[in-house]
Nucleic acid binder design. Sequence first.
DNA 1: GATGAATGAGGATTCATTCAT
DNA 2: CATGAATGAATCCTCATTCAT
Lengths: 193, 193, 193, 193
Amino acid sequence: MTKDNILNSALQLYATEGYHGASMAKIAKGAGIKAASIYFFFKNKEALFQELFQHVLMEHFAYVRRSMEHVLKSGEDVETMIRTLFSTVSDYHRRHAAETRAYIALVTAPPIMAQPILKNHMQSFDQWLTSTLALILKEECLSTQEYETISELIVLQMDGLFWELNFYDDEKIKKQTDVAIHFILFYLKQLQD
Amino acid sequence: MTKDNILNSALQLYATEGYHGASMAKIAKGAGIKAASIYFFFKNKEALFQELFQHVLMEHFAYVRRSMEHVLKSGEDVETMIRTLFSTVSDYHRRHAAETRAYIALVTAPPIMAQPILKNHMQSFDQWLTSTLALILKEECLSTQEYETISELIVLQMDGLFWELNFYDDEKIKKQTDVAIHFILFYLKQLQD
Amino acid sequence: MTKDNILNSALQLYATEGYHGASMAKIAKGAGIKAASIYFFFKNKEALFQELFQHVLMEHFAYVRRSMEHVLKSGEDVETMIRTLFSTVSDYHRRHAAETRAYIALVTAPPIMAQPILKNHMQSFDQWLTSTLALILKEECLSTQEYETISELIVLQMDGLFWELNFYDDEKIKKQTDVAIHFILFYLKQLQD
Amino acid sequence: MTKDNILNSALQLYATEGYHGASMAKIAKGAGIKAASIYFFFKNKEALFQELFQHVLMEHFAYVRRSMEHVLKSGEDVETMIRTLFSTVSDYHRRHAAETRAYIALVTAPPIMAQPILKNHMQSFDQWLTSTLALILKEECLSTQEYETISELIVLQMDGLFWELNFYDDEKIKKQTDVAIHFILFYLKQLQD
DNA sequence: GATGAATGAGGATTCATTCAT
DNA sequence: CATGAATGAATCCTCATTCAT
């Protein structure tokens, strides 16, 4: 459908040139139509952006959540769960490179109107992550202090991996993911001894 | 000096709106002059950008390197050195927020002409970091395998902290820096036992 | 009927924004349909305009003529006839505010194609008005000179009232109408003495 | 000067096509420059309009006031003063046809932002006219009632002449002006007997 | 009858840049 | 050093119109 072509084209451009660099003409060309036609589907540039941005955030969130819910229900051990958490997120980004790059570009030089959506999303994600970590770690007999520290640690590793998506190739990212997982599990084990 | 005003104004704009969002008129206004006057100091928009970008990268590199050389020469223990490495980088970014945000914006949606400079810089920095880590860890009797793992770990923590600069306030960044340092040292200690 | 809705919507827009300000999209929205649908009823924007314009002029002319014919046939005295002439015109405009405002907007900044219609209408109206005034005044025993002067005077009062429709409210317009009538009758009486 | 050329060109276009019909490109062409250059002198289309509109209103007001002050000071009789009032206004409009037509076009289909300026101006003009009429008529020994009637009558004649500017040629306008003056004086004389 | 989808032309405005002063 | 004045190209967006459904 034309609308999807527009959204896709916009996504690619946001990924490589940011919001300001993605002109309506370029987006249209990428979608195989003329610039004027975009306005049949979207009120203006901002509305197109908002719809796309929101969609990208939703998709990512939904995917990660679904994947984790699945694992949590299956009653696996901590190691498997943490491994799944990291590889799910990492895989998602590796397989949705354009979305991820667009997301990063938009987060780091966000058009003003993106900021509320973004803030909202980050809050939701943080909240979800916190409660998910609680579920993962609930049988590990950790003190509050220990629990908080390990949570912060996990977030730090995820953020590190995320930033590295900008530079490293698949191979290296996979390796860094393993390092992160390994490290977290290692620390967890030490705590329990 | 006027030239510095121009560079400063450009930096602020790159930080908040990215390369495409920073028009010559806006830069000029921020510098208290008219757009035409910029051309007395810079051949064109690209030249201005290049000079500024190069300068920002240099400054950062030079600062971190100087700071680490100082510590390395003073023959402190591993802990101090790692602590210095992290807090130097972290402090620099916290105190040069505009430069950092501009850097991030430009890295994540880089105008084509920035890419060689960027690649070049990253290579140099990686190289320097690797050799510096070698110096820091040289007395710790690590196997090659262990050395590599811990290097990757350190880089991962640095990258995590860097990405978090986008969202967290000073307080939280400081805390996350402490978490990073704490765990690296912890891991190092475990390896040695 | 849809066609009437379109004409009505166009009328409102011509009244408030003139010909250039009345886009097909706005007209359609006002009629509760999509712009494309207008083309089922009208060949193009110009044809819609022409039909509407002609209709507005006709209606007004027909109304005033009908009303005056009625009075003329009833064989009233001069005063009543002049009073009727003025109040008929004045009332019509007050009760057809949109038509009147559209008419004024179109007369004062007329799209080229409107000008022949307009010229035609004005000629007809002038002609009718002249012959009507002749009928009204025929029993007043006026010299040609006197007759011409009083005709010009009447036209001048009508034009004054018409222009004032742009600014004054109903109340004031009614009052000014009375002033005009009073003045004309006064002058007429003086002539006869 | 270029700025004046722009204002002049805009004036002509407003006169013939109204605000909506006067595109920046057309205005620029009339001024012998390119559309982009207009923005060096005016912030945007609205600002250009406002400046021009205000200027037109001021000029007219100032001219009429100056002219009347002159006559009032010279202590002429009523007849001369009324004659001067009408011919001054009439002459001004006949000699500033473009300004007048632009004024009419803008008043009858006014862009929203023009309305406060317009309202303001009309109030000022009304006020001035009222007080001027008071000065003109002060020695005529009129009752309040009579004074008010004759004031309204004068305004009505002026409005009629103004509207007729849209259609009649110079010759006819002059004649109608004479008719108006003649009748006002006539009415005044009758009152005094 | 009505609309979804599309477009070429033109609208206002911004942009980087030039050049004479 | 700095700017006033100018512009071609590109920006976002609206317009009237078409055509298949």
